[in-house]
């Protein structure tokens, strides 16, 4: 079902954990739908992401996308981190099954939520960053009618 890359990131997730006094923390998703991601960012004075950690409650794809997303933003500038889209996360994982695409959206949202938190705390504005949605499942397509 999953690519080797997804399995690798699920079994050996990178950057699991917490950061004390993080520059920004973002939590997205909800337990009702079965996935929650929390991303911690440590951002230095030059607006570079010095460190990043995550915690995730969710399926294999949710863990793998969080792990990959942290890898993709680590050591990057805030602006570069803004370019890390769900597509980029998916590509880096050699794809996801269609029913799991929402996990990659969640990962993108989690990064944005953490950046939003950072921006709010520091009274700055990050170009292109919008207030994160509280529920990423909003507006998702309904299942097809049967018969």
């Amino acid at each position: 079902m999953y690519s080797e890359k997804v399995m690798d990131h699920f079994e050996h997730p990178r950057n699991v954990g917490e950061i004390e006094n993080a520059s920004g923390v973002g939590t997205v998703g909800n337990a009702k739908c079965g996935d929650i991601m929390r991303i911690y960012l440590d951002i230095d004075e030059n607006e570079m992401i010095r460190d990043v950690k995550f915690k995730t409650f969710g399926c294999g794809a949710a863990v793998a996308t969080s792990s990959m997303a942290t890898e993709l933003v680590k050591g990057k500038s805030i602006r570069e981190a803004m370019q890390v889209t769900n597509k980029a996360v998916m590509e880096a994982l050699d794809g996801l099954p269609p029913v799991k695409v929402h996990c990659s959206l969640l990962a993108e949202e989690a990064i944005h939520a953490a950046l939003w938190d950072y921006a709010e705390k520091h009274g700055i504005k990050i170009e292109g960053l919008e207030k994160p949605k509280s529920d990423i499942h909003e507006g998702e397509e309904e299942e097809e009618e049967e018969y």
Binding site: F10, D35, F57, G58, G60, A61, A62, V63, E143
Partner: peptide, 29 residues
């Protein structure tokens, strides 16, 4: 505090087959 599908994959890696009522194993939310 944990989700069923990740549990199943981890069990599978240890050669254990089980099933879960988690949404992620049914393809719905």
């Amino acid at each position: 505090f944990i989700e069923g599908e990740s549990l199943l994959i981890k069990l599978d890696r240890k050669g254990i087959c089980g099933s879960s009522g988690s949404a992620c194993t049914s393809g719905s939310l």
